[in-house]
Design a binder for these strands. Structure first.
Lengths: 338, 338
DNA sequence: TTGAAAGCGTTACCAT
DNA sequence: ATGGTAACGCTTTCAA
């Protein structure tokens, strides 16, 4: 069984040439080193014949680069992150990179541990959705010369590459949309979080509310987990009659909120109009179809790879961070219109 | 910036001992090699102080093991696979393994290419949802001594470890359930696929139908993609009036089917009762809530890791494949009862 | 009880 | 034009 793996040494010996020669040919330096056309062909043919491929491990050790990028997100089983993962993966392979993923569960301790683990493992770069208080670790990464791109959230105190979306602007638009549709008491249901993507969405909501001389109704769900969320939102609606519009800042909050409203006999969109951040396949299936803000997944993935490859490219190493702020799209559906 | 990475050599030099000594201490062989308690402590203290960690790359090169497992599924952005991924990931890290993921899109060519890529990259093991006609590649992996566990599907012709669920049995139960609820014309909507997980589900359906002396109505959607699926299913219902029960073999078929039925004005469960394979968060949110077969995700992940670690464990290398066939659970909800 | 040195598979500098 | 060889960082055998 297991045909012993060939090494460059074996190739060289069999062909009666030196390792160096083989290595040069392998790395496309035959011309440069003026190795005869004939020998080059011969070596290449033999290599193809026996199906030899260099050991990436040895190359990594020698070159100090592993061609591995870590994709560290809040939760890889979350549809949004999984979709990005999928898109990134493709682009990474195309460029000879592998992706290792991991989930932080948005816990700072776990994120730090993960970062340390991978620093040690000679990965080349990190794509991270930072947890709270991760500034120091991230700076450390930068100092030590790792490639780094943040996404979904960024850190005002750290100068680095990132790919994010226009959270504030989209939240403003969503809220304004509800107001335009005649809502007078528009609530924001969000998670209790000081992370910037959430505070930006809050800001957008607040701006829209105050520009229209309305009163804000902000409800922040604490210690988010599915079951709790549902209960809290149920309470909120019970205690706040008269709400006629709701903007959910994440899709899972919306799912729970819709369930809660359904069980309270609240008619959507008749009594309450609804908009959610983060579009989802299911929003289009739900009755009524839910209006939602769609993030440009494909573009996010593309820019993420562009940024990380840029960082990893020796030639451009020092040309400064790449920062992308992408536009979302408001998909208007039944929940805010009928 | 970038404080130069320490090597074992640096440690040895600074402490004035040999590399060997440090290595032994590092690898817990201090006692065995009878290195003085005192020296051991001193070295350990220093290592901790400077935060030294061995290079995994060099270790891998030396030991021929990389502590990397490839998780190769049909589509990592699919909820089912993403959930498993998430669970696997945790368990892998706990055991010192990293996970690299990739999606085959169920294309044999892509799967083969991916397998080759990773073989070359010195990964230790593979967890694979095989595409059609992947037998040879899989056998190759086995021959070359890689760890291997199949899941979701298995290959009758290849003796190897796998983790699957009771597809036929659950399909039988689901169909029988519809019949018990009074359905007389029960349709099966499935994908056109010769892969065993799907043929097993078909078998289960057929058995239940024939045991109850009913007629089968099997509709196999070809060339599956979201948009097409919807259209085809729409046609099916238009052309087959009188169907009063449907069993969907995957959840995405169910989503499309439900949408199609909704648009045709078919009342679920009044006119048509519905059961789907692969439970989903949204089945519980949908109106009506959808009856579905739930695969034991947590258990699948657990057994997957158990099987792969078993394979990778030197000591037990030759103790034969581990094959798990797990039970599903039928979650009965409104779509098949009211 | 400790150390020297070979070897894992490469790359690339320096010779020839 | 081609080859010898040090180095990457580690483990482990053998010797002392």
């Amino acid at each position: 069984m297991a045909k012993k793996k060939l090494s460059i040494k074996d190739i060289a010996k069999t062909l009666g040439v030196s390792i160096t020669t083989v290595s040069f040919i392998l790395n496309g330096k035959a011309k440069e080193k003026r190795i005869s056309e004939e020998l080059t062909k011969k070596v290449q043919r033999y290599i193809k014949e026996v199906g030899y491929t260099p050991s990436h491990l040895a190359q990594s050790l020698r070159l100090g680069k592993s061609k591995v990028i870590v994709f560290m997100v809040e939760d890889i089983s979350n549809q949004f992150f999984a979709s990005i993962a999928r898109l990134i993966e493709e682009k990474a392979y195309l460029n000879g990179y592998k992706i290792i993923y991991c989930s932080t569960e948005n816990e700072t301790a776990k994120a730090k541990e993960l970062i340390n683990t991978f620093k040690v493992r000679n990965v080349d770069g990190f794509i991270i959705t930072p947890t709270p208080d991760l500034e120091e670790s991230v700076k450390g990464l930068l100092d030590e010369g790792f490639g780094l791109v943040l996404f979904d959230r960024w850190m005002p105190d750290v100068l680095c590459s990132y790919v994010i979306v226009e959270n504030e602007k989209s939240a403003f638009e969503a809220t304004q949309h509800l107001i335009d549709r005649g809502c007078k008491k528009v609530a924001l249901i969000t998670v209790e979080s000081h992370q910037i993507q959430m505070t930006d969405r809050l800001k957008g909501y607040q701006n829209a509310i105050s520009q229209n001389q309305l009163s804000p109704y902000v409800f922040q769900v604490k210690f988010h987990n599915m079951a709790q969320g549902y209960d809290r939102i149920l309470d909120f609606f019970s205690n706040n009659p008269g709400i006629d519009g709701v903007f959910f800042t994440t899709n899972y909050l919306a799912f729970e909120g819709l369930e809660a409203m359904g069980n309270l006999g609240i008619d959507v969109p008749g009594q309450v109009k609804v908009v959610s951040f983060d579009d989802h396949y299911f929003f289009n299936l739900y009755k009524p179809k839910i209006t939602a803000i769609e993030q440009p997944l494909e573009l996010i993935a593309e820019k993420l790879m562009e940024a990380i490859l840029h960082q990893l490219d020796e030639a451009e190493m020092n040309s400064g961070p790449k920062q992308f702020i992408l536009s979302n799209k408001l998909n208007i559906r039944e929940s805010s219109t009928i």
